[in-house]
Design a protein around this nucleic acid. Structure first.
Lengths: 218, 218
DNA sequence: GTGTAATATGAATCAGTTGTCATGTTTATT
DNA sequence: AATAAACATGACAACTGATTCATATTACAC
């Protein structure tokens, strides 16, 4: 992956002692808070170091620029969201069930980590490359799972990548409408509609004449 | 609508002579280009006036701040997109057909007006209120049409607003993947997948056991 | 405990940016 | 042609915010 080199991102100097470790963390926590509250562009490095309680110069010991600490947080966020959704979805069987639970888990994540999630909304403007990496990598994984589910005949056969983008859009926009804007879960009626849309849209096994005739496995 | 007062936005002084009209337009065109290329935050007023070929002070004759010219462009964009999609969709019958054609028209719009469309992506960060107005107003209209189609039995009965957000997300994300990122229309296979997803997801008349029993028209 | 690398500091530098203003020109109106 | 309103100019005051640097302290290997 081009954004990461080894474990660390470019422009980030990991600390080497435990004292350094502590300030590094303080900076990250402060940045997460302030970015979340005011957004990337309205936040200054001074805001970050003030909240972290360190001096200006200290910031540049660990991060080359303001953008670099932002990137670091975004990559972290990426892992967190995936972990949260994976965890919720793992015990379930069948793509459709996973898909439904996944959507709810995603909405939960937004509610529980508004600040962190807001970074993602900023990402497109701050670093378009990283933004593409983020959704591209998400989509690739997603498509892989969808393809597997198609193999198993759990969902209708179609272009997995296109489907992945449809589903991501659906998740993001519903997550925006209720969790993000209203700060509460989507109401039952909405969830029901979304679930039915997913169910019919993906095509459950019971669907008769819908998809192309199932290919025989080679 | 709270964002507009009369015909003009706050913070915008419309010109009163035809000379003024010309510079006003030059400024808007320049702003559209530069915002589109570099994004809102990376663009300075100097960038705009340089491209427009006018002096600094002239800018402030017509716009109170940089944000105000941005808002003006966004409202313009909102009308343009709607017009473009409406026009493409008007001659068709049936919600599903309109939905399909609408998605293609939206993708076309992105391809033909990249710069203008990019403003929309910036909007969320620049002015969250206006952003909510934008999608909220879009969704409301969308939901109204969907509700009508439900009445007519063209699509499955469900929560129109939730459905509207699903569909907007689907449009935006597929529009991002191909038109925006690759600068070309979505490939045939992807379109087919998206269309089928829409078709089954919305529930077409041919669907037997899916929706609630069709109500007889009054 | 000595020396070296790591960590911390905050004042100073530097590269912009926005928005204003005094001055001058053009246009519309009479 | 006179006049007032509209339009245009570009220098500049006032400010914001990112990054650097000389200096000082602390941690750790030996």
């Amino acid at each position: 992956m081009s954004v990461l080199n080894g474990n660390a991102l470019e422009g980030v100097n990991k600390p080497k002692t435990s004292r350094g470790e502590a300030t590094f963390r303080k900076l990250l926590e402060a940045a997460e808070e302030v970015f979340g509250e005011k957004g990337y562009y309205e936040t200054s490095v001074v805001d970050i170091i003030t909240r972290a309680g360190v001096a200006q110069g200290t910031f540049y010991l660990y991060f080359k620029t303001k953008k670099d600490i932002f990137r670091h947080l975004v990559v972290h966020l990426h892992h967190e969201i995936r972990k949260h959704v994976q965890l919720a979805v793992a015990p379930l069987n069948g793509r459709l069930a996973k898909e439904k639970r996944g959507l709810l888990a995603f909405h939960e994540f937004i509610l529980q980590h508004r600040n962190l999630y807001r970074l993602l909304r900023d990402l497109e403007l701050v670093d378009e490359e990283l933004f593409k990496w983020y959704y591209g990598s998400f989509a690739k994984n997603y498509a892989r799972r969808l393809a597997k589910a198609m193999e198993k005949g759990e969902i209708r056969r179609s272009d997995p990548e296109a489907l992945a983008y449809c589903l991501m859009g659906l998740n993001v926009f519903t997550g925006m409408r209720w969790p993000l804007w209203e700060n509460k879960p989507a109401p039952a009626g909405a969830v029901e509609t979304i679930f039915t849309f997913l169910e019919k849209g993906l095509g459950n096994p019971g669907d008769g004449p819908a998809g192309p005739p199932p290919k025989e496995p080679p």
